[in-house]
Simulated assay, not measured.
Amino acid sequence: MNHFFLPSPIQSITVENKHFYLKRDDLIHPDFSGNKARKFHYFLQNNLPHVQKAVSYGSSQSNAMYSLSVLAKMKGWEFEYFVDHIADYLKENPHGNYKAALNNGMQCRLMEDGGWKMEDEENTLFIAEGGRQKEAAFGIRLLAEEIIEWQKEQHIDELNVFLPSGTGTTALYLQKSLSIINHHEVSQERGQSLIQVFTCPCVGDSTYLKKQFSMLEEDEKYHPRILTLDKKHHFGKLYRENYEIWLKLQQQTGVEFDLLYDPLGWRTLLAHSEVYTTKPTLYIHQGGLLGNESMLPRYERKYRK
């Protein structure tokens, strides 16, 4: 990755008077950062001369949509993105990830207009929603290597890692990579312990997330541990508790977090003290801040006080 800030920095932070480490993957690159930079690293680094167009699908304000538009622009590809629905307000007032992706040359299509054009398959790269595919392991392994190197430099024997999940791809491949690398090192260097990855489901429930893990990796020994809250959470819905913790995080750390995943992530992590009181805990900031441009005004309108 040319002009990319790797390894991403790790800083100490205090949240609600509790100490954490923060992996700043949001700082990898101004236009191509967070877990999407990791997931799509394979496509950026490898020469794919047959590819002329990238095609994917998902929501009209998806972080992956924007990151793919950047990737396509960097590689000189066309980019088609399919959605089920585009709100009239968004069409008339483009903003956030949607506007930025359009500016990068994205062609946005409705699923009802015909879906994939399979006749173009030879020259087309199909990318699953949110980057949920085996190629994602390539860049996420680099993330695992960065964490292990930092762990050694800090002389930390045992470490917990936490990140919120959509498709769960990053959490799964991070746990698998850490386990494989550490297993190799344990056999050569006694005392090096495993790193445990924890996550929480943001899009569906635990059952949904386990299914996502199993689609990519059947062996459950490589699956992260799933943490949840008692109260059910609906993806994309505005919750007062999410807005409050987001504001607190900014006040207490000086770091801006994503409004869609990070509030639930931090609320879940803070509710499970057995994770961060027993071992040093590293939270991964996965970027996605462009989405705040559309989420923040909604929160401000609903919770003015």
Rank of each mutant, 00 (worst) to 15 (best):
R132Q: 15
L22F: 14
L102N: 09
G130D: 10
D113P: 04
S69W: 06
R24A: 03
L6M: 05
Y21K: 05
V255G: 01
T170N: 01
D219N: 13
R301M: 14
S273R: 13
F235S: 04
F4I: 01
L110A: 12
N47F: 08
N97S: 04
N63S: 08
S33C: 06
H183Q: 15
E146C: 11
R141W: 01
Y276A: 06
E256K: 13
L102S: 11
I147Q: 07
V203F: 08
Q196P: 04
V275H: 02
K211F: 00
G291D: 07
M111Q: 15
F126K: 14
P94G: 11
Q250Y: 09
R301D: 13
S206V: 10
E185Y: 13
L290F: 05
S59E: 14
R267Q: 14
E189W: 04
P164V: 12
A144C: 03
Y42D: 04
N160K: 11
N123M: 10
K117W: 01
N47R: 11
T169W: 06
N35I: 12
W116I: 12
N160M: 08
W116H: 15
S206Y: 00
P164I: 14
L247I: 04
S294H: 13
K210R: 13
L259S: 13
L296Q: 13
H19D: 03
S67E: 00
Q11W: 00
C200Q: 05
M106F: 04
P7A: 06
Q192F: 10
